[in-house]
């Protein structure tokens, strides 16, 4: 267990070191100008600091005592997967349906509510979000499969 924790922290610091070195290398190739006031100067300084700091953090994680790291709950992976799927299908399916499925599945999985309750709650949340952001704040949200504009136009006509 402890061995896993050490590996996790060391691995993360190592990844940060690789990440910083990669960008430091690219920072040196931003411009041909080698002057101190060139467009590459601040990026070189920033990524040099990152390389040094990540190197020190890695060294510290190797030589100091183990800091316990909590296990990642399965819900975290589920949420990340759901956000990825949501972003992939958002424009195709539209805000209303994709958000309904997104919230419904997450409330069902995370809160442990019954499926019907989860989706009823999701419907309420999505409708309130839509009303606040789309209708009041005029934020553009993808329509997808539902002809929202036509529906809104029809509803508007009903009250006129």
């Amino acid at each position: 267990m402890n061995r896993m924790c050490i590996t996790s922290e060391q691995l993360f610091n190592l990844l940060l070191l690789v990440f910083s070195s990669f960008f430091l290398y690219h920072a040196f190739h931003i411009t041909e100008d080698s002057g101190l006031g060139s467009s590459a100067s601040i990026p070189i300084m920033a990524f040099s600091v990152m390389v040094m700091a990540s190197l020190m953090a890695l060294g510290k994680s190797i030589f100091s005592s183990v800091r316990p790291v909590e296990k990642i709950p399965r819900a975290v992976f589920l949420v990340l997967l759901m956000i990825l799927l949501y972003s992939l299908f958002l424009e195709e399916i539209g805000f209303l349906i994709s958000s309904l499925v997104f919230i419904g599945v997450l409330v069902f999985a995370i809160n442990g509510s019954r499926l019907v309750t989860s989706f009823a709650l999701a419907l309420l949340v999505v409708l309130v979000t839509y009303l606040v952001f789309r209708i009041v704040f005029k934020v553009m949200l993808p329509e997808g499969m539902i002809p929202e504009r036509e529906i809104l136009f029809y509803l508007k006509n009903l009250f006129n």
Partner: peptide, 16 residues
């Protein structure tokens, strides 16, 4: 369990 999915939705809508 209800609040957190709503935060995720608001974050996504905000970013979009």
């Amino acid at each position: 369990g209800i609040l957190i999915p709503i935060i995720f939705l608001l974050s996504i809508v905000g970013a979009y």
